[in-house]
Amino acid sequence: MIGWALGFGFAAISIALAMNLWRLIKGPDMADRILALDTMTINAIGIIILGGIADGSGTSFEAAMLLALVGFVGTVAYAKFLLRGDIIE
């Protein structure tokens, strides 16, 4: 039963990643591209977590946590650059 759930999870997140990639390429302005990149980071975290559940390893959860931290800092930096034109004050 868990195999079916993991397969469905991988398929759903893969479809979401494809739609986010489309928004990243086609986005009408820079804010949409930043949101698409942030959502792609969240989807990548989901894939890492699902892979950790499938393998039964605990190290993937730490990798997902590190990716979440880096993704958050990156999104904040992109948004600050978009608003002010400068990251470091």
Rank of each mutant, 00 (worst) to 15 (best):
A68L: 14
N43Y: 02
G71W: 01
R33M: 04
T39M: 14
L21F: 13
T75F: 11
G7I: 04
S14E: 02
I34T: 01
F8W: 12
T41M: 15
A5V: 10
T39L: 13
A68H: 13
T39A: 14
S57W: 01
F8R: 11
V70E: 09
L6A: 04
V73E: 09
M40C: 08
F10G: 05
G56F: 00
V73C: 15
M1F: 09
L83R: 10
A44Y: 03
R84T: 09
A16S: 12
K26W: 01
G9K: 04
E89D: 14
T75Y: 05
A54T: 00
M19D: 09
L82E: 05
G58Q: 07
I15Q: 07
L6N: 03
T41R: 06
V76Y: 07
I34W: 02
V76L: 15
G56L: 00
M65W: 11
I47D: 04
L35K: 02
A18V: 09
A64S: 13
D55Q: 10
A77W: 02
L66E: 15
G71H: 02
A63C: 08
V73R: 12
A36M: 03
S14Q: 05
L24H: 01
M30A: 08
T59V: 13
L50Q: 01
Y78D: 09
L21K: 08
A11Y: 06
R23S: 06
L21R: 05
G85T: 01
T39D: 03
L24D: 05
A18D: 04
A36K: 03
A36S: 08
Y78E: 10
G74T: 06
R23I: 01
E62H: 10
L50E: 00
W22Q: 10
A12C: 10
I88Q: 11
V70C: 15
N43E: 14
F72P: 13
I2N: 12
F72E: 13
L17C: 14
E62T: 10
S14K: 03
D38T: 06
R33K: 09
S60E: 06
A11E: 10
A16C: 12
N43P: 05
S57A: 13
V70R: 11
L82P: 02
L35V: 06
A44V: 11
I87L: 15
A16V: 04
L83G: 05
D55T: 11
G56W: 00
L21I: 12
S14W: 00
E62S: 12
R23T: 00
T39I: 09
I42Y: 08
K80L: 12
D38L: 06
A31N: 12
F10H: 09
A5R: 07
F61E: 05
W22G: 06
L21E: 07
I87T: 07
L37Y: 07
K26F: 05
V73Q: 11
G51R: 00
G85D: 02
A79P: 04
M1Q: 14
N20K: 10
L82S: 04
A44R: 04
R33P: 05
L66A: 15
L69Y: 07
W4R: 15
I47L: 15
